[in-house]
């Protein structure tokens, strides 16, 4: 009956889409002009031709290639390791029986709610004791597996790895490791793509801890390089936003490739009915 959509609703939806996209469009507009064009009385509203020149300037001002490489390495390792370790732990929590399981899982859930930034001062000391200050290791190792990943993968296991199959494998004398590899992991593959993507994004976009612990000149990530670009006394907006566009492009492309699964799997981390 009332399933037809009114013009008002369509207009509102259009507004939402424009609001979602406009800041990205505007980044490209600013990134493709020079400062002179931006300081005219009427700012340019369409993209210009200066993007290549601005990009060259970005790569000259900071070591952006190194930043891209560092970010890719950090986020790539975090992704692979979170997927591996959280499928293992999630499988154990969802489908294996062992003493203390529920209490240990309660620890996972609780720790997921503790804001990580609060231990940052001792963490800084600890990383220094390990000799990791200014090294990518300092960002990589604490991020190898998160409570969120474990929590999320346990849910995925409960949905997608049949308990009967795991029990049958056990009766047949299959080892736990083989059951994980041949029964759980294949069933978890679609979920692994979603979790991997979420991990990659979170790692690529991380700012606070890299800012504290990395050396902006020697081991910048993309976010640190961007904050260096923006950090001078005078902010060169076309330069800064060219960096922002270059640093955003990889994640947006990755998102475009996996959006379908991400959108479908988003509800999992929240409240399941």
């Amino acid at each position: 009956m009332r399933r037809t959509s009114g013009p008002l609703a369509s207009a509102a939806l259009l507004g939402v889409l424009v609001a979602s996209l406009f800041p990205l469009y505007w980044s490209v507009v600013v990134a493709s002009h020079d400062n002179a064009a931006l300081s005219r009385r009427v700012p340019p509203l369409l993209p210009g031709a200066e993007l290549p020149a601005n990009a060259r300037e970005v790569f000259g001002a900071v070591d952006f290639w190194a930043a891209l490489g560092n970010s890719a390495a950090v986020a790539g390792i975090a992704t692979a390791s979170n997927v591996l370790l959280s499928t293992m732990a999630g499988f154990a929590f969802a489908r294996l029986r062992f003493r203390g399981r529920d209490k240990l899982f309660a620890v996972v859930v609780t720790s997921a709610m503790v804001p990580a930034q609060l231990g940052v001062v001792p963490l800084f000391e600890l990383v220094g004791d390990f000799g990791w200050y200014g090294e990518l290791t300092a960002v990589v190792v604490p991020g190898l597996v998160s409570a969120f990943s474990v929590f999320w993968m346990r849910q995925a296991c409960r949905e997608s790895v049949p308990a009967e199959l795991v029990d049958a494998a056990r009766v047949d004398g299959c080892s736990v490791a083989r059951t994980y590899w041949h029964v759980a992991l294949p069933a978890l593959r679609p979920h692994a793509v979603v979790l991997g993507m979420l991990t990659f994004l979170a790692s690529w976009n991380d700012f606070f801890w890299p800012l504290v612990v990395l050396d902006p000149h020697r081991t910048p990530t993309v976010q640190i390089a961007l904050s260096t670009l923006a950090g001078g006394y005078y902010t060169d907006h076309p330069l800064v936003l060219t960096g922002a566009v270059l640093g955003t492009l990889p994640v947006v492309l990755l998102f475009a490739l996996t959006a379908k699964r991400i959108v479908a799997g988003l509800g999992r981390g929240a409240v399941g009915r």
Partner: peptide
């Protein structure tokens, strides 16, 4: 939905 989610994907620094 992907467009609606897109802003969340963009790095907070950007």
């Amino acid at each position: 939905r992907a467009v609606v989610l897109l802003p969340n994907v963009v790095p907070v620094v950007a």
